[in-house]
Simulated assay, not measured.
Amino acid sequence: MSELLSPPASTPGLRLSRTQKDLIAGSVGGIAQVLVGQPFDIVKVRIQTAPSGTYKSPLDCAQKLLRSDGPTGFYKGTLTPLLGIGACVSIQFGALEGAKRFFGKRKGDKEELNLAELYTAGAIAGVANTIVANPVEHIRIRLQTQPQPPIYRGPWDCAVALWKMGGIGGVFKGQVSTIWRDGLGYGSYFLAYEYLVQRHIRTKGVKREDIAPIWSVTYGAAAGYALWFSIYPIDVIKSKLQTDHLNPTKRQYKGMIDCATQVWRTSGWKGFTGGLTPTLVRSPFANGATFVAFELAMRGLS
């Protein structure tokens, strides 16, 4: 089983524990994900949360963003995810590797994990991630969709404003939808990646640390598609809930079911696919970068 876990276990120089290495390498992967994927993500969020007909296409959205905010507009709200997503992915990989080790020990550390075990490990990682992911994404979405002149001066100012308006519930708005999205989505995400890695190790007869980076990128890209195709409608609902008014008397949506019902009534199935194109374009780059950065960082920490 040891060759199926992220390599390798010995750290004679750094004397880091396995969990510490998982967390550090996960942070590296998260930073890579943000830097590569942020321009695509802001287009996705704007399309998801804008009234129907605001943008003709993702390209139209990108062009309008470029005209109104310039090139730096594509990295609006980046500080929050750069810090937060680094922490999120760190938690994801730490929880994932811990769950994999738990299942591996039960099977004698030699047998491959089955699909159910891989999915469960990924789901655990996804749910663990939400404690940081939800407030980070909430703040990022508020910054990405704020008008000009801006309402918030930056991430901290936005967080303080959310707290003043809604307390802890204001900061963690959309938490339930994030748990559903990340639990289901990261189950599929890590299942796809880890299954492909296990298959590569088995068919090629190599150790995990010997897998070429191009394969980590390829398998990460496939994992990204597995993630988004499994949960995209939930992500749309989450984005709409997180841009809804914090004052309960002024909210458009009462919750996930009410939001889904209203979207269906006004836009049908298309209402749940807004912003899908930039997401699918972004996915192989961002997720490929995440996994190759994680794997290489793990090797560097050995």
Rank of each mutant, 00 (worst) to 15 (best):
K105D: 08
K105V: 06
R106H: 12
R106N: 08
K107Q: 15
K107E: 11
K107S: 15
G108R: 04
D109E: 14
D109I: 01
K110Q: 11
E111Q: 14
E112K: 00
L113A: 11
L115C: 01
L115T: 10
L115V: 05
A116P: 00
E117F: 06
E117I: 06
L118C: 09
L118W: 01
L118M: 13
L118V: 00
Y119P: 00
T120S: 14
T120N: 06
G122T: 09
A123D: 08
A123S: 15
I124D: 02
I124K: 04
I124T: 13
I124Y: 00
A125Y: 07
G126F: 03
V127A: 13
V127E: 01
A128Q: 05
N129Q: 15
N129T: 06
I131T: 14
V132P: 07
V132C: 11
V132G: 03
V132R: 04
A133K: 01
A133Q: 13
A133V: 09
P135S: 10
P135Y: 04
P135E: 09
P135R: 12
P135K: 12
E137N: 03
E137G: 02
E137F: 00
H138V: 10
I139K: 05
I139Y: 05
R140S: 14
I141W: 04
R142S: 08
R142D: 04
L143F: 08
Q144G: 03
Q144I: 13
Q144L: 14
Q146M: 13
P147V: 02
P147R: 12
Q148V: 14
P149V: 08
P150W: 01
R153T: 10
R153E: 14
G154N: 10
G154H: 04
W156Q: 05
D157I: 07
C158Y: 04
C158D: 07
A159S: 14
V160L: 12
A161V: 05
A161Y: 07
A161M: 11
W163Y: 15
K164D: 10
K164Y: 01
M165L: 15
G166W: 04
G166L: 06
G167K: 06
G167L: 06
I168A: 15
I168D: 01
I168Y: 10
I168W: 15
G170N: 10
G170S: 08
F172L: 06
Q175A: 15
V176Y: 09
V176L: 14
S177D: 12
S177Y: 00
S177Q: 14
T178V: 01
I179K: 00
D182K: 01
D182H: 12
G183N: 14
L184W: 08
G185K: 07
G185H: 07
Y186L: 13
G187T: 06
S188G: 11
F190N: 08
F190M: 10
L191H: 11
L191G: 01
L191N: 03
L191S: 03
A192D: 04
E194I: 00
E194W: 00
Y195E: 06
V197A: 05
R199K: 15
R199I: 00
H200P: 04
I201K: 07
I201W: 04
I201M: 13
I201E: 11
R202T: 09
R202W: 00
T203E: 15
K204V: 03
K207H: 12
R208H: 14
R208P: 02
E209V: 10
E209M: 07
